[in-house]
Design a binder for these strands. Structure first.
Length: 516
RNA sequence: GGCGCCGUCGCCAAGUGGCUAAGGCAGCGGAUUGCAAAUCCGCCAUCGCCGGUUCGAAUCCGGCCGGCGCCUCCA
């Protein structure tokens, strides 16, 4: 509520309760729906790493006008629709590596509690029933508007057919009476269903308590959703609902060049200089910038997953500070994928040198950095500390990732300096230093929830035959080179390169990778 | 119109009063390599514009320009 960073002081020392507003399950999720979960997954991982006992709740809103409309259009029940979209959401979360959510409460599982909650608000005079509807009376809440920073008279409120039942247009529905054919539950005010905001007030309180620590959601939810939620909760029990509010920036659909909106006026300038109808049009969809959402028709997340590795998408979401908007484009994802190769190549290199898989390293073992007499060890512990400082500063994952790149460079340098890759039997203490430094990388990466599993092996081809064919060409090239027939060898290599196969000659043979 | 956010290297992106303005992608030079690839080393920005506060500002204040979000469903 202070609109500033504050030190974390949990309600209960050592424990942290987090509530993140989840999806209304009426359509397949798009990439925007993954932003909050990925960010809070990292937040939970970090707080857990720091020794807190964290409980994280993500609600599922499975009854709402939008579900009714969509289910009618498709001719299925809202339960069937909800189940289908929940399954889609869960699949997408799993792909993103978000597996730290403790509770997924559903609105329809908590109707009784919602009715109780509304009754209490009526009893306290903060809400009133009208023709089967129940509305929250914003005029009774002197604090209304404190979260989003707006004054009551600046709130328009929704008009429409219910306008005449409300005391003020800014009042919002806690309970909506059912029209014929609509799903409904019995209540003291007649058959109906919950309004949009009430489920979050109720379910957060049920699981995390009246006052909990962190409430999150997209920036677009600040008003009216969170404003109304705070109003309901705090009028109901008279205590603060959440101690800290974290709102993530929204995903912006970017153009092909990655230049979006205000990031560069040059694109706009150039456009005005170009005669209408000339080049620039290209791909109208890609030129458009703005928030993703149903109005923009963002692609289902499952489609995106077909084209890009999950880890690439996760990395994109963590590559800047969570409060800032994320500019999304195909080109951006390709750049991210290219930068990730630096890590993947190091992991393979580490395995060549030590015979041990990076992924087998113990993520918890990285913390022991005692000997700083060695230059590399000193650098590793310096970067580790900088990473943790960045995370302490409002979960600055963008800065933290920068430290990861510096860390991998320090480790590559160490391998180079001591020629560990060339040596038949590298000195044990050198290997120990390398292993120690690499386990720090593993430790820090696990906080971000990245590099947890090997990505599909970069060797190997689309199918077995491709792999065998490449292997055959590599063998032929090796024979040509053995005969000093470099011309033929290079022709094979260049030809493969044109097909997207890159060869790397090493002391112990030739390694190859396919870019797709 | 009201409320809020933002403008840092070709692109992405840290930094919000004082070390040489992180890091990535792209690019250039070098080491290495038969040549490459990979790796390492080096080079590559005075922070939208104007004015002010200050010993000192990308960082604070004011104005301007540009962009975005919310005010109606949206993570």
């Amino acid at each position: 509520m202070t609109r500033s960073k504050q030190p974390l002081e949990p309600v209960t020392p050592g424990k942290v309760g987090i509530y993140l507003c989840g999806p209304t399950v009426y359509k397949p999720s798009h990439i925007g729906h993954m932003v909050g979960p990925v960010i809070f997954d990292v937040i939970k991982r970090y707080l857990t790493y720091r020794g807190f006992d964290v409980t994280w709740v993500v609600n599922i809103t499975d009854v709402d006008d939008k579900l009714i409309v969509e289910s009618n259009q498709r001719g299925i029940s809202i339960q069937a629709l909800a189940n289908e979209m929940i399954a889609d959401y869960m699949t997408n979360l799993a792909a993103m590596g978000v597996d730290t959510i403790d509770h997924f409460p559903k609105a329809t599982d908590n109707i009784d509690a919602i009715i109780d909650f509304i009754s209490r608000l009526i009893d306290k005079g903060f809400a009133y029933a009208a023709d089967g509807d129940v509305y929250f009376d914003v005029g009774k809440d002197s604090a209304y508007g404190k979260l989003s920073g707006r004054s009551l008279d600046s709130v328009q409120g929704e008009g429409g057919e219910t306008a005449d039942r409300k005391r003020s247009l800014a009042d919002f529905a806690l309970w909506k009476s059912a029209k014929p054919g609509e799903p409904s539950w019995e209540s003291p005010w007649g058959p109906g269903r919950p309004g949009w905001h009430i489920e979050c007030s109720v379910m957060s309180q049920q699981i995390l308590g009246e006052t909990f620590d962190i409430h999150g959601g997209g920036l677009d939810l600040v008003f009216p959703h969170h404003e109304n939620e705070v109003a309901q909760s705090e009028c109901c029990h008279g205590k603060p609902q959440a101690r800290y509010w974290l709102h993530n920036g929204l995903m912006q659909a970017g153009g092909e060049t990655g230049k979006v909106g205000g990031r560069s006026t040059r694109a706009a300038d150039a456009a005005t200089e170009v005669p209408a109808g000339a080049p620039a049009e290209g791909d109208a969809e890609a030129q458009e910038a703005g928030k993703l959402g149903k109005s923009k028709g963002a692609a289902p997340f499952s489609e995106l997953l077909k084209k890009h590795a999950p880890e690439t998408i996760r990395f994109l979401l963590l590559s800047n500070h969570y409060r800032r908007p994320i500019y999304f484009s195909e080109q951006r994802l390709e750049e991210i994928a290219a930068s990730l190769e630096t890590f993947y190549r190091y992991f393979k290199r580490y395995e060549r040198v030590t015979g041990e898989s990076f992924y087998a390293l113990d993520a918890a073992a990285g913390s022991v950095t005692t000997d700083n007499s060695d230059e590399t060890q000193a650098e590793v512990s310096r970067l580790r500390q900088r990473f943790l400082d960045a995370m302490d500063d409002d979960f600055n994952t963008g800065a933290a990732i920068g430290d990861l790149f510096e860390l991998v460079r320090a480790l590559n340098k160490y391998v180079d300096q001591h020629a560990l890759e060339a040596a038949d039997a590298p000195p044990a203490e050198k290997l120990a230093t390398l292993q120690q430094g690499t386990s720090v990388l593993r430790e820090l990466a696990s906080i971000l929830g990245i590099f947890r599993q090997p990505v599909q092996s970069a060797g190997g081809g689309d199918d077995a035959l491709t792999g065998e064919l490449v292997a055959l060409l590599v063998k032929l090239r090796a024979e040509a080179r053995a005969d000093k027939n470099y011309q033929l060898g290079d022709r094979i290599r260049d030809g493969l390169q044109e097909l997207g196969v890159t060869l790397e000659d090493r002391a112990d043979g030739t390694e190859w990778t396919i870019q797709r």
